[in-house]
Amino acid sequence: MRVFPVYAPKLIVKHARIFLTGVIWVKDLGRLEFEKGRFLLPRKSLPKVKQAILELNELIEAQN
C-alpha cells in the first residue's frame, strides 16, 4: 500500500497504471482500491471521495 500525503491526481494515476491492482491511501480521502488500472467506487463513500475517483478514472481514460 502506497501512502500519498496530498491529493496529486497525476501521480496517483501513474501509480495505478504501473501496478494495475492494489490499494493506496490518500490523506483526506482515505483508502482507494484499483483493479486493472481503474479505481473502484466503494458502495458507500463521501461525495468528495466519489468525485476524486471519477476524476482519476477520467484521467486514466484520457491517457489511453
Score class of each variant (00 low, 15 high):
Lys27Val: 15
Glu33Arg: 15
Ala52Thr: 06
Lys44Met: 07
Leu40Phe: 06
Lys27Ser: 13
Trp25Thr: 05
Pro9Tyr: 02
Arg17Glu: 14
Leu40His: 07
Val3Arg: 05
Leu32Lys: 00
Pro9Gly: 03
Phe19Ser: 12
Lys14His: 12
Lys10His: 14
Glu58Cys: 08
Val49Trp: 03
Ala62Glu: 13
Lys48Cys: 05
Leu20Val: 09
Thr21Tyr: 07
Glu35Phe: 09
Ala62Tyr: 12
Leu40Asn: 09
Arg17His: 09
Leu46Thr: 13
Arg43Gln: 10
Val13Phe: 03
Ile12Lys: 01
Trp25Phe: 09
Leu41Asn: 09
Ser45Gly: 10
Asp28Cys: 05
Arg17Leu: 14
Gly37Trp: 02
Met1Tyr: 01
Lys44Pro: 08
Ala62Thr: 12
Glu35Lys: 12
Leu46Val: 12
Phe39Gln: 00
Leu46Arg: 15
Glu55His: 13
Glu33Asp: 13
Ile24Gly: 00
Glu33His: 14
Val26Phe: 01
Glu55Leu: 08
Arg2Cys: 11
Arg31Ala: 04
Leu41Tyr: 11
Ile53Arg: 00
Pro9Asn: 02
Trp25Leu: 10
Ala8Leu: 13
Ile60Trp: 11
Tyr7Met: 03
Gly37Glu: 07
Leu59Tyr: 06
Arg38His: 14
Ile53Ala: 06
Ser45Glu: 09
Leu11Ile: 08
Lys44Trp: 11
Lys48Met: 10
Glu33Met: 11
Ile60Ser: 05
Gln63Val: 10
Ile60Phe: 08
Ser45Asn: 13
Leu59His: 05
Lys10Ile: 11
Glu33Pro: 07
Asp28Gly: 14
Phe39Gly: 00
Asn64Asp: 14
Leu20Ile: 13
Val3Trp: 15
Lys36Gly: 12
Val26Gly: 00
Leu56Gln: 00
Pro5Val: 09
Ile24Cys: 05
Glu55Pro: 00
Glu61Phe: 08
Leu11Lys: 09
Arg43Leu: 12
Tyr7Ala: 02
Gly37Leu: 05
Ala52Phe: 05
Ala8Cys: 11
Thr21Arg: 10
Gln63Met: 13
Glu33Cys: 07
Arg2Trp: 15
Ser45Gln: 10
Lys36Trp: 10
Arg43Thr: 10
Val6Cys: 08
Leu40Arg: 11
Leu59Phe: 07
Met1Phe: 03
Val13Leu: 06
Arg31Thr: 07
Lys44Leu: 08
Pro5Tyr: 15
Gly37Asn: 05
Pro5Cys: 15
Pro47Asp: 08
Phe4Cys: 03
Pro47Leu: 11
Val49Gln: 07
His15Cys: 04
Gly37His: 04
Leu32Thr: 01
Gly30Gln: 02
Tyr7Phe: 08
Ser45Asp: 07
Leu56His: 00
Leu54Asp: 09
Pro5Ser: 09
Pro9Thr: 04
Lys36Phe: 14
Ser45Thr: 12
Ile18Ser: 12
Leu11Glu: 14
Lys44Ala: 07
Pro42His: 07
Asp28Thr: 11
Leu41Met: 13
Leu11Ala: 13
Leu11Tyr: 05
Ile53His: 02
Gly30Leu: 01
Gln63Ser: 12
Leu46Asn: 14
Asp28Val: 05
Leu56Arg: 01
Val26Glu: 00
Arg38Phe: 14
Asn64Phe: 05
Glu55Ala: 09
Ala16Val: 15
Glu33Trp: 15
Asp28Lys: 15
Leu32Ala: 01
Pro47Ala: 12
Phe4Glu: 01
Lys36Val: 08
Pro47Lys: 15
Ile18His: 15
Glu33Thr: 14
Gly37Lys: 04
Leu29Lys: 03
Glu58Gln: 14
Gly30Ser: 02
Glu55Ile: 06
Gly37Thr: 05
Val26Trp: 02
Asn64Leu: 12
Arg2Val: 15
Arg17Ala: 14
Leu11Met: 08
Phe34His: 04
Tyr7His: 03
Ile53Gln: 02
Leu46Ser: 12
Leu41Phe: 12
Lys10Met: 09
Lys27Gln: 14
Lys14Met: 10
His15Gln: 04
Gly37Pro: 00
Leu54Gln: 07
Val6Trp: 13
Lys36Met: 12
Ile18Leu: 13
Pro9Ser: 04
Phe19Met: 11
Lys36Pro: 04
Glu55Tyr: 13
Lys50Ala: 05
Thr21Pro: 02
Asn57Val: 02
Lys10Trp: 09
Asn57His: 02
Leu32Gln: 00
Gly22Gln: 02
Ile53Val: 13
Phe34Tyr: 05
Lys14Cys: 08
Leu56Tyr: 00
Val49Met: 12
Pro47Cys: 06
Gly30Glu: 02
Pro5Glu: 15
Asn57Lys: 01
Asp28Ile: 04
Phe4Lys: 00
Lys44Asn: 08
Thr21Phe: 08
Ile53Gly: 01
Pro9His: 03
Tyr7Thr: 02
Glu35Gln: 11
Val26Leu: 03
Pro5Gly: 07
Glu35Leu: 10
Ser45Arg: 10
Val26Tyr: 01
Ala52Gly: 03
Ile60Asp: 03
Lys50Leu: 06
Val13Asp: 00
Lys48Tyr: 08
Glu33Phe: 14
Lys27Met: 15
Arg17Asn: 12
Pro47Asn: 11
Leu46Met: 12
Leu29Asn: 00
Phe4Val: 02
Leu32Ile: 12
Leu20Met: 10
Arg31Tyr: 12
Lys36Tyr: 10
Lys50Asp: 09
Gln51Tyr: 09
Ala52Glu: 02
Ile53Thr: 05
Ser45Pro: 11
Arg38Val: 13
Val26Pro: 00
Ile60Arg: 04
Pro42Cys: 05
Arg17Ser: 13
Gly30Asp: 02
Arg2Thr: 14
Gln63Asp: 12
Phe34Ala: 01
Phe19Thr: 15
Ala52Pro: 01
